[in-house]
């Protein structure tokens, strides 16, 4: 079973509500650079929504076992074990293991669904499916 945030980029209007919700929830500030999901304008005027798809490629890269997969299939980062090496950031195929300026520890989407609940255009959805 894999729980993850599914995106429907064609529905995205670029309102950035998801980034506000995410950064406010995780970091108590409205700062798009501290959001686990990003809204990126593409060349055609639409939007890309890069966010962790819980592929687990990062997990074996971690020396300290700070990255684990929970029962729902979500990759969780234990900040107390992380030593900020960024090996997981480098190997992430979707560039969604996030970093921010002087923060030592990276951060990522935990499929909490807060952004999906607030998305006004239905571009985000938490799904659970077999992979």
């Amino acid at each position: 079973m894999k729980k993850y945030l599914k995106t429907y980029e064609e529905k995205c209007t670029g309102c950035n509500t998801c980034m506000t919700v995410c950064s406010t929830l995780f970091f108590k500030e409205d700062n798009y650079e501290k959001s686990c999901i990003q809204v990126v304008k593409n060349e055609k005027g639409g939007f890309l929504l890069p966010v962790c798809d819980q592929c687990e490629i990062c997990v074996p890269e971690c020396h300290t076992l700070a990255l684990t997969v929970n029962k729902k299939g979500v990759v969780m980062l234990n900040k107390s074990l992380c030593i900020g090496c960024y090996a997981c950031v480098a190997i992430c195929p979707t560039d969604t293991m996030m970093t921010y300026h002087n923060l030592i520890v990276p951060f990522k989407c935990t499929a909490c669904g807060a952004c999906a609940k607030e998305c006004p255009s239905g571009a985000l959805e938490i799904v659970e499916e077999e992979r």
Binding site: C85, Y86, V89, A90, I91, T99, H101, N102, I104
Partner: peptide, 16 residues
Amino acid sequence: VKTVQDTGLKLHKEII
């Protein structure tokens, strides 16, 4: 520390 992180990340990506 930012330069240490950025330089390290650049090399990580190159290696991978």
